[in-house]
Amino acid sequence: MKESVLPARRPARPGGWFHYLANPGRFQKLARPALPWLAAASLGFTVAGLAWGYWFAPADWQQGDAARIMYAHVPAAWVAMAGYAALALCSFVSLVWRHPLADIAAEEIGPVGAGFTGICLVSGALWGRPMWGAYWVWDARLTSVLILFFLYLGHITLIRAFDNKAHAYRAAAILALAGAVNLPVIVFSVQWWNTLHQGNSVSLAGSRIYPTMLYPLLVSALGFYLTFVTLVVARMSAAIAERKTAALLRAAAERAP
């Protein structure tokens, strides 16, 4: 009886959850109460990880204190790449299924991801100068991360460049998807080519970082990931509210002559 009155409250198919959640109204209902908790967790883990790395982690055997830059640089790099993967996924969903929430997410991920990529580049330069002897070199790892930064900037510009939003979303989604081929290049650049940048310290095969230095890195990385999620969810929630406000004001203007 009840089921026939209310339209499907719970998705029946396994893939149905995706469609169920990909609705701006439901997103708002979930996001608004979750945001304070997300923000508190982001702040807690980020501050704990960075403070642990800056003050308490041991100095490195070859790099000394300069290795402390790792606790900011490596999480920023991971989030920059994961953020781009999320952007590419949203673009894919947008192109194939035309979900409005995927477009909103893509528009809001761009600036946040570009910011983390910028942090990765700046902290890397500040690490390279004392350790390598140069702020910047044109090796494959550094160049591919710089390309990632420009892909973010291109996406930010393109998605805001059209008067027709549908065209903007489609053009930006194609750019984001095409740029996704850069992600494996970044990860494997240190293995495929001779680079000045050292190899990956943490991979699926394991870690080459001693536990007393790995734990603060993982706490910091968790904090950075949570910060990214919090920032994107807050910006998406604000974007949805802005759209609703604009729609309400338009409707009010049409009612009143």
Binding site: A59, W61, Q63, G133, V137, L196, Q198, S201, Y210
Partner: peptide, 17 residues
């Protein structure tokens, strides 16, 4: 004209080394 140092990807405290 210029010499750059390339370090490994292993991180550990000095006492462990």
């Amino acid at each position: 004209d210029e010499v750059l140092a390339k370090h490994g990807a292993d991180y550990m405290p000095r006492d462990v080394e």
